[in-house]
């Protein structure tokens, strides 16, 4: 078992963004055939993977770069692989979920623990989102769908443009406003 206290300090725990992504994906997907390939990138505690797994009846694979996160997600009953984004995955994947780190951070600030890494989106907030979008077309099935959570802090238009440059069409599926930001769930498909 993971040391609970350590995991809570070092692994991103479910928050508003996780809930919005999980609910939106669950509503959109409904029941899925058991052999549907669903992957949750940056799964953290495994919350989104577990929720979407329950809602769809599919065993969702959780992926995370953090050794502490993959152990915690596995403790929550989620199948896991340790990988940087989609690097260790081959397609075709039917559904890809991603709640990325998106908080813009000072370029001089160094992250030195896994929680900071889980939150830090780099100077423009798109440190993880950009390479994800660049690699997604490689693994996404022809009629596959990706659900990406983004924030107004991350510049939703820049994300949509990066997707388009990679041959992906983006569509806003859900949103929720908070005092300092607006959270959006984008659906991405091959254009």
């Amino acid at each position: 078992m993971v040391d609970r206290e350590r995991a809570a300090e070092q692994v991103y725990q479910p928050a508003e963004d996780s809930h919005l992504l999980a609910e939106t994906a669950a509503d959109e997907l409904g029941d899925l055939p058991a052999d549907t390939r669903v992957v949750d990138v940056g799964t953290g505690s495994g919350y989104v993977a577990a929720q979407v797994g329950d809602a769809t009846g599919v065993d969702v694979l959780g992926v995370d770069i953090s050794p502490i996160a993959v152990r915690e997600a596995r403790d929550h009953g989620v199948s896991v692989v340790r990988s940087n984004l989609l690097d260790g995955l081959a397609g075709p994947l039917d559904v890809v979920l991603f709640n990325p780190p998106y908080l813009p951070t000072d370029p001089d600030a160094e992250w030195d623990d896994w929680m900071e890494y889980a939150l830090s989106g780099g100077p423009d907030g798109r440190r993880a989102v950009d390479p994800f979008l660049d690699d997604l077309p490689r693994v996404l099935a022809e009629d596959g769908r990706a659900f990406l959570l983004v924030s107004s802090l991350t510049d939703v238009e820049a994300v949509t443009e990066r997707a388009a440059a990679n041959g992906l069409a983006a569509r806003e599926l859900a949103e929720e406003s908070f005092p300092f930001e607006r959270l959006v769930v984008l659906e991405l498909r091959h254009a």
């Binding site: 770069i65 953090s66 993959v70 152990r71 340790r82 990988s83 690097d87 260790g88 992250w111 896994w114």
Partner: peptide, 17 residues
């Protein structure tokens, strides 16, 4: 290890982020 495949390249496998 312990049911978890580690698909990080060797140079990313150890240590802090």
């Amino acid at each position: 290890e312990e049911g978890i495949p580690n698909l990080l390249p060797p140079d990313m496998r150890e240590g802090a982020p």
